[in-house]
Design a protein around this nucleic acid. Structure first.
Length: 419
RNA sequence: GUGGUCGUAGCUCAAUGGUAGAGCUCCAGGUUGUGGUCCUGGCUGUUGCGGGUUCGAGUCCCGUCGAUCACCCCA
């Protein structure tokens, strides 16, 4: 039996790699446009880094690729970026002016049963603003998430940001007399309102003194006062149409302290495209108090995004256009006697920064032109018996001109061949 | 971890329990130094793997591995 890739892990053949690179470069260019700086950390971390964060909920540890290395050290493949980010920030935050706007594009690993939109190894874009607690930072993060998706060709018809606020929830729950533990239980139930039977949820809610009806009433009030500053900032950017206040979003994690949000496709057929929120106490907790900075961030994975691109013609076409094969020059060797000179031309083209290809073995001229077409070449340079003259042909118009070597080089240099 | 569905050529898929096929891709040709189309020819299968029923299994049964969808969960 031949060995194939492990379940949930992917091979990236050239066409897959091109697609992935295009997604990554779109992420990078938008984040850079927003003034974010890229960082990265190690793929392998001490297992303790994840234990520390999750003393409350231990399921995460079950999904860790964790093992002992050769020295007996407990290590794990990173399942997310936030602990690494917190570690790095705590180690050197005094070096950086605030707010720190950092992003990364990294691969992550989770040992889960794979299904649509969820693999065991995936790529995720993460962006965080550290050291700024104002709603302006919340709006900046939300805008980035929106513009990231717009850069792929999506519009308000295709996706929506559902915006909620943990602080509003905690205030509400406190007003109902819930202590911290009861609040977490209530939030967990709120997260499942759409999926589980009310009876079952009411049973879970019993210790909190609340009912499903109480939660629904709170959610039903719509947009609380707390959203106003963020919504105003989004309105000033013209992005209101992408955001919908929705208190039913609570997110599973315990550490969120303020704004939380998830991005969904409008047709609601996929799982969340992106999600995140404010976590003002996490860096303090993870660093044992070495640093204490407010932060807000989110992640966007490549898997669900890829599904939505495939299902959205406008985005699929845009991606496809970016992936069309392209080559500046194909050097046609019409006379094998001049192969050495042709190689010289190839080298010159490449040194000028032009993507250039040529046949590695003798091939009939017709086949060479066919090959040039398949490779998406813009121009062909034909080297043959008339050497030292060569022909430069623009393949789209079939226009040819005869040039000597210096005229050719001049032409390649000056106009970059944009005929 | 639980349940449903599905595994046939590199890819997409056919084949009533009775001799395993097509399209695409790929490769080679279509006489002189010029094109995506077109024409001709060619390669590829222990039908995921292992058992069983049967005169005979791609087809039916069991197991196993994998894929997929849902549940669980989603940092």
């Amino acid at each position: 039996m031949p060995i194939s890739a492990l379940p949930g892990f992917r091979d990236f053949f050239p066409e897959d790699c091109a697609r992935r690179n295009q997604i990554v470069s779109t992420w990078r260019s938008v984040a850079t446009r927003y003034g974010f700086q890229e960082f990265d950390g190690p793929v392998l971390e001490s297992t303790d880094l994840y234990r520390k964060k999750n003393d409350a909920g231990a399921e995460i540890l079950d999904q860790l690729y964790a093992f002992a290395d050769r020295g007996g050290r407990e290590v794990a493949l990173r399942p997310e970026m936030t602990p690494t980010l917190a570690r790095m920030v705590a180690a050197r935050e005094k070096h950086y002016r605030k707010p720190m706007k950092w992003f990364c594009v990294s691969n992550f690993f989770r040992h889960e049963r794979q299904q649509k939109g969820r693999l065991r190894e995936f790529l995720q874009f993460n962006a965080d603003i550290i050291g700024e607690s104002s709603p302006a930072a919340d709006a900046e993060i939300l805008s980035l998430a929106i513009d990231l998706l717009r850069a792929f060709g999506f519009t308000a018809e295709h996706f929506v940001v559902r915006l909620s606020d943990r602080a509003a929830w905690m205030d509400f729950l406190a007003s109902k007399g819930c202590d911290h533990a009861a609040s977490l239980t209530a939030l967990a139930c709120a997260d499942k309102l759409e999926r589980e039977h009310p009876d079952k949820l009411n049973a879970r809610l019993a210790p909190t003194g609340l009912t499903v009806e109480d939660l629904r009433t709170f959610i039903g009030q719509g947009s609380p006062q707390a959203f106003a500053p963020v919504m105003d900032a989004l309105a000033a950017r013209g992005l209101t149409g992408f955001v919908q206040p929705d208190l039913s979003i609570v997110r599973g994690l315990a550490y969120y302290t303020g704004v939380v949000f998830e991005v969904f496709d409008r047709s609601q057929t996929l799982r969340a495209l992106a999600g995140g929120g404010r976590y003002d106490g996490l860096i303090h907790g993870l660093s044992d108090g070495a640093a204490d900075l407010p932060a807000i961030g989110f992640g966007m994975g490549d898997v669900v995004l890829g599904h939505l691109i495939d299902e959205t013609p406008a985005a699929a076409q845009r991606l496809q256009a970016a992936l069309a094969p392209s080559l500046d020059i194909f050097v046609v060797i019409a006379d094998e006697a001049h192969r050495p000179e042709a190689l010289g031309i190839v080298q010159t083209c490449r040194e000028l920064g032009l993507s250039t290809d040529f046949p590695l073995k003798p091939v009939k001229t017709g086949k060479q032109f066919q090959e040039a077409e398949h490779l998406g070449a813009q121009h062909a340079i034909l080297v043959g018996q008339e050497w030292p003259l060569v022909k430069l042909k623009h393949l789209a118009t079939r226009a040819e001109e005869v040039l000597d070597r210096s005229a050719l080089v001049q032409k390649l240099k000056s106009c970059k061949l944009d005929s």
